[in-house]
């Protein structure tokens, strides 16, 4: 189970731009709409499976494809310390 780190703030910018701000390090990240949806769902406490099903339905994509893409995103986020993985 992944959780968003507490010091991370998600913000929508103008014209479909999305940002994540790390209040502890001062680093900031530009994310696309899909990644923003994933991080926002994590912030709301959603489980990975639910996020995948929701995105696959919303975009009309195969769940396996979405799951692989989301897993790749979360690995990057974990490397950057933006999310934590809980047992």
């Amino acid at each position: 189970m992944y959780r968003l780190r507490q010091g991370l703030r998600l913000r929508r910018g103008p014209s479909e731009t999305f940002w994540a701000f790390d209040l502890e390090s001062g680093e900031h990240y530009e994310v696309n709409g899909t990644a923003f949806a994933v991080l926002e769902a994590l912030e709301g406490g959603a489980e990975l499976d639910m996020i995948v099903v929701t995105l696959a339905d919303e975009y009309g994509k195969c769940e396996d494809t979405v799951r692989a893409d989301v897993a790749e995103l979360l690995e990057m986020c974990e490397t950057e310390g933006l999310v934590t993985r809980e047992a």
């Binding site: 900031h28 990240y29 530009e30 919303e58």
Partner: peptide
């Protein structure tokens, strides 16, 4: 909607 692979880029 058009699907975009989730992406994050450090600034």
């Amino acid at each position: 909607k058009t699907y975009e692979k989730p992406a994050i880029k450090k600034q």
